[in-house]
């Protein structure tokens, strides 16, 4: 018994020194955020010119039909399009929907019930990790105002939509549009997929803070991510290999970036795939040759001081 204790103490000591080693060997120097160049002179930063920034996508919630007017899900959607709801969109680092889209969505919400199966109890919603923080903000405020609990989980957009199709959840949150294949299997499962645009998100391109590259064209990005360019010197930078970081196949960002930037071509097999935005930030921070794409909120949070100063200096 006493020996077990000594051994336990020994292990605890090892664990403690490991944790200490972790903290001393980790560093958070921050990342740089690239501008996307469009033509010879114009370049857009996702932080400064969100309206013109080309790699911007809508974020969605998908439901099975339009919920009945007195159901919790109806109130949830109504809340999301309210001023309070859209204020949180800004707080979470995204862009609110424009008035035109908002009116369209509200009209859809009041176009008449197509699904009266949604009840008054708690709501379950599953999907995009990018929307995770925002949904949590919404859910907490919604709980306070309407006293309805929203259960969230964030396994990725694809999984969320699959969950909706299989009838496991009331709603799916997604950072990409639903695919035709998914619509088809939804039809087979008698799920009438209804789309709600709830916010917009820019995908920021992040690099190591000491990388001298400040601008890339979408064409450059395509060549980098398909593996045509493998060295930073090919886009006018250091002679240093490019190391690709991206999201895994369950992610909506993975699909969106592939469609919007790679024109549907496959990612280079050398791209390392991660399950979250923050893991990509952590890798790019520590790799001089690294490049990654993350939601603009994550990039802004971890912008290196030098880059932040430069942005303000403009």
């Amino acid at each position: 018994m006493g020996n077990k204790l000594i051994a336990g103490g020994f292990v605890v000591l090892v664990v403690l020194s490991t944790v200490l080693a972790m903290f001393t060997s980790m560093s958070f120097p921050g990342v740089g955020v690239l501008n996307i160049q469009d033509g010879d002179e114009l370049s857009y930063s996702p932080l400064e010119n969100p309206e013109e920034y080309p790699i911007t996508r809508p974020l969605y919630i998908y439901t099975d039909g339009v919920p009945a007017e007195n159901s919790s899900l109806y109130q949830w959607l109504e809340y999301i399009y309210s001023d309070d709801g859209q204020l949180y969109v800004k707080n979470a680092g995204f862009y609110p929907v424009g008035s035109e889209v908002k009116d369209k969505m509200k009209a859809q919400l009041n176009s008449g019930t197509t699904n009266d199966k949604y009840g008054n109890g708690e709501i379950t919603q599953s999907g995009s990790t990018t929307l995770g923080d925002l949904s949590t903000l919404w859910a907490n405020d919604f709980q306070k105002k309407y006293n309805i609990h929203v259960v969230l989980n964030t396994p990725g957009s694809g999984t969320g939509i699959t969950n909706l199709i299989n009838g496991f959840v009331d709603a799916a949150q997604s950072s990409r549009e639903i695919k035709d294949v998914e619509l088809e299997s939804a039809k087979n499962n008698n799920v009438n997929v209804t789309e709600w645009v709830v916010a917009y998100d820019a995908l920021a391109i992040i690099v190591h803070k000491d990388n001298p590259i400040k601008n890339l064209t979408v064409e450059d990005l395509k060549n980098i991510y398909t593996g045509t360019y493998t060295n930073w010197s090919e886009v006018g930078g250091y002679d240093h290999p490019i190391v690709l970081y991206g999201r895994d196949s369950a992610s909506g960002s993975y699909d969106y970036f592939k469609e919007a930037v790679l024109d549907g071509e496959s990612y280079s097999i050398k791209m390392q795939q991660f399950s979250s935005n923050s893991l990509i930030v952590a890798e790019v921070e520590n790799n001089l040759g690294g490049i990654g794409y993350v939601g603009v909120g994550y990039a802004e949070e971890s912008l290196a001081d030098e880059w932040a100063e430069e942005q303000n200096g403009h």
Partner: peptide, 11 residues
């Protein structure tokens, strides 16, 4: 671990 949740059942 990564791809199973993404694959539609039966695909």
């Amino acid at each position: 671990a990564i791809d199973v949740p993404e694959a539609a059942i039966g695909s």
